Measured scan of single mutants.
Amino acid sequence: TEYKLVVVGAGGVGKSALTIQLIQNHFVDEYDPTIEDSYRKQVVIDGETCLLDILDTAGQEEYSAMRDQYMRTGEGFLCVFAINNTKSFEDIHQYREQIKRVKDSDDVPMVLVGNKCDLAARTVESRQAQDLARSYGIPYIETSAKTRQGVEDAFYTLVREIRQH
């Protein structure tokens, strides 16, 4: 089974770092803004072998026109913010609204991801993020692309959301 996953969120929150940590098991430290990259990885989730087709997208506003296209083809979405960047957390709402509009559905598989949880300088409390996820009816997972904490959990949870859909 193949799953088309799309990673969305503001610029600099760590979308590529999360994806590369999942696929290649290493942490990319330097920031190089993405336009669009796709990665494929075969994994076993709950005993089922599946192929993850992951689209890593641009957070930069100037590429926002490309969003409709990949939102149409994606089956599930990782909505990523950084726990030390309140603005990126506030941006999640717009991504969710755009996904709902493009998919013409209120019920699209999504996982809210709070990345950079290895950093002490948190400005978005776990509780705020949990409340937001609960209001959307989606899971919330904290990750660190640096330490790998929660990385597999985030992507695998999204696959489970798609399966249950």
Results as ranks from 00 to 15, higher is better:
124 V>G: 10
77 F>G: 01
15 K>S: 04
96 R>I: 15
75 E>N: 09
84 N>Y: 06
80 V>F: 14
51 L>G: 07
132 L>C: 06
163 R>S: 10
25 N>E: 11
119 L>A: 15
15 K>D: 00
12 G>R: 10
147 T>N: 13
78 L>G: 02
36 E>G: 01
4 K>L: 04
40 R>L: 04
95 Y>K: 06
42 Q>H: 09
11 G>D: 10
93 H>F: 12
112 L>I: 12
109 P>Q: 04
139 P>Y: 05
165 H>F: 12
140 Y>K: 00
149 Q>F: 10
79 C>A: 08
88 S>G: 08
121 A>Y: 05
164 Q>H: 07
35 I>T: 02
62 E>G: 15
55 L>S: 07
123 T>S: 12
114 G>K: 01
128 Q>V: 09
60 Q>K: 15
61 E>D: 14
41 K>V: 14
128 Q>L: 10
1 T>H: 10
161 E>M: 14
94 Q>S: 13
93 H>A: 14
36 E>T: 00
119 L>R: 13
47 G>H: 06
136 Y>C: 10
84 N>M: 11
85 N>G: 10
18 L>P: 01
66 M>S: 13
82 A>G: 14
110 M>R: 01
138 I>L: 11
23 I>T: 06
83 I>L: 15
141 I>K: 04
157 T>D: 06
70 Y>S: 09
160 R>P: 01
150 G>M: 08
13 V>Q: 13
144 S>V: 12
144 S>I: 09
163 R>H: 04
84 N>R: 06
6 V>S: 03
165 H>Q: 12
154 A>V: 14
106 D>P: 09
90 E>K: 09
23 I>A: 06
151 V>D: 07
36 E>I: 01
147 T>R: 08
85 N>V: 04
129 A>F: 08
99 I>Q: 02
129 A>C: 07
60 Q>A: 14
153 D>S: 07
137 G>S: 06
121 A>K: 11
89 F>C: 07
36 E>V: 01
23 I>P: 01
25 N>I: 05
23 I>E: 01
35 I>P: 00
129 A>R: 04
29 D>A: 06
74 G>Y: 10
32 D>P: 00
140 Y>G: 01
43 V>E: 07
112 L>P: 01
120 A>G: 12
100 K>S: 05
135 S>V: 07
98 Q>E: 14
80 V>A: 04
73 T>G: 13
118 D>R: 01
68 D>T: 07
128 Q>A: 13
154 A>T: 07
149 Q>R: 09
148 R>I: 13
71 M>N: 10
53 D>P: 03
76 G>N: 03
45 I>W: 07
161 E>N: 09
82 A>L: 02
1 T>G: 10
151 V>E: 04
88 S>P: 04
14 G>L: 01
108 V>R: 03
34 T>E: 00
112 L>H: 01
46 D>T: 05
10 A>P: 08
11 G>S: 12
26 H>V: 07
153 D>R: 06
24 Q>N: 13
95 Y>L: 14
83 I>M: 15
105 S>N: 04
20 I>Y: 04
116 K>Q: 14
58 A>K: 06
92 I>C: 08
60 Q>L: 14
115 N>E: 01
31 Y>K: 00
113 V>D: 00
28 V>K: 00
4 K>M: 05
162 I>H: 04
63 Y>I: 14
62 E>I: 14
18 L>Q: 04
10 A>L: 08
88 S>Q: 09
23 I>W: 02
89 F>W: 13
22 L>C: 14
36 E>D: 13
115 N>T: 15
150 G>F: 06
94 Q>W: 15
101 R>I: 05
150 G>V: 11
128 Q>I: 13
75 E>V: 13
57 T>R: 02
64 S>V: 11
67 R>A: 14
158 L>I: 15
3 Y>R: 15
137 G>R: 05
143 T>W: 00
134 R>Y: 05
34 T>V: 00
17 A>M: 05
46 D>A: 10
96 R>P: 05
9 G>N: 01
133 A>G: 04
132 L>F: 13
104 D>K: 11
115 N>L: 15
40 R>W: 04
96 R>Q: 09
111 V>R: 02
51 L>K: 04
121 A>W: 05
108 V>T: 06
151 V>C: 07
161 E>G: 08
43 V>Y: 15
146 K>Y: 14
22 L>Y: 07
106 D>M: 10
65 A>M: 14
105 S>C: 11
73 T>Y: 11
53 D>E: 07
66 M>C: 14
118 D>L: 00
156 Y>R: 14
70 Y>A: 11
82 A>V: 08
62 E>V: 15
119 L>I: 11
55 L>R: 02
129 A>H: 04
12 G>N: 15
93 H>W: 12
41 K>Y: 11
143 T>E: 02
45 I>P: 04
15 K>Y: 00
93 H>T: 13
154 A>I: 15
73 T>C: 13
5 L>K: 00
137 G>W: 02
69 Q>W: 10
94 Q>N: 15
27 F>R: 01
163 R>T: 08
118 D>K: 01
84 N>S: 12
144 S>P: 00
139 P>G: 05
63 Y>F: 11
70 Y>N: 13
142 E>P: 04
130 Q>R: 09
163 R>Q: 13
129 A>G: 11
81 F>I: 11
73 T>R: 09
155 F>I: 14
89 F>R: 05
62 E>T: 15
73 T>I: 08
11 G>F: 06
151 V>W: 08
154 A>D: 01
133 A>I: 08
95 Y>M: 15
16 S>P: 00
15 K>V: 00
67 R>H: 15
82 A>W: 04
147 T>F: 09
63 Y>G: 11
165 H>G: 11
135 S>H: 10
17 A>D: 00
40 R>P: 00
99 I>C: 05
98 Q>M: 15
54 I>N: 02
77 F>P: 01
71 M>L: 15
141 I>Q: 04
72 R>A: 14
114 G>N: 05
92 I>E: 02
133 A>L: 04
119 L>Q: 14
76 G>I: 15
142 E>A: 04
43 V>R: 13
13 V>L: 07
78 L>S: 01
95 Y>D: 03
64 S>K: 07
104 D>T: 08
18 L>E: 00
66 M>D: 13
112 L>G: 01
31 Y>G: 00
109 P>F: 05
53 D>W: 03
103 K>S: 08
36 E>L: 03
143 T>G: 07
87 K>S: 10
165 H>I: 13
114 G>V: 06
90 E>G: 07
38 S>F: 02
115 N>S: 14
25 N>P: 08
58 A>F: 02
65 A>R: 10
92 I>S: 05
152 E>T: 09
34 T>H: 00
18 L>R: 01
30 E>M: 05
63 Y>N: 15
88 S>Y: 04
9 G>W: 00
58 A>S: 14
74 G>K: 05
112 L>K: 00
60 Q>H: 15
73 T>L: 11
1 T>L: 08
60 Q>M: 14
23 I>R: 02
94 Q>C: 10
76 G>W: 00
14 G>K: 01
86 T>V: 12
96 R>M: 15
142 E>R: 03
105 S>V: 11
33 P>F: 01
61 E>I: 15
133 A>N: 04
62 E>W: 15
68 D>L: 06
118 D>W: 01
149 Q>T: 09
84 N>V: 07
7 V>C: 12
61 E>N: 15
32 D>I: 05
109 P>K: 10
81 F>L: 11
136 Y>A: 07
163 R>V: 07
105 S>M: 12
99 I>R: 03
111 V>W: 00
114 G>Q: 04
136 Y>T: 06
137 G>T: 04
138 I>P: 02
120 A>R: 08
145 A>L: 03
78 L>N: 02
79 C>R: 01
4 K>R: 10
107 D>C: 13
110 M>H: 00
85 N>I: 04
132 L>N: 06
159 V>N: 02
18 L>W: 01
88 S>W: 08
28 V>T: 07
113 V>R: 02
131 D>A: 09
157 T>F: 10
138 I>R: 03
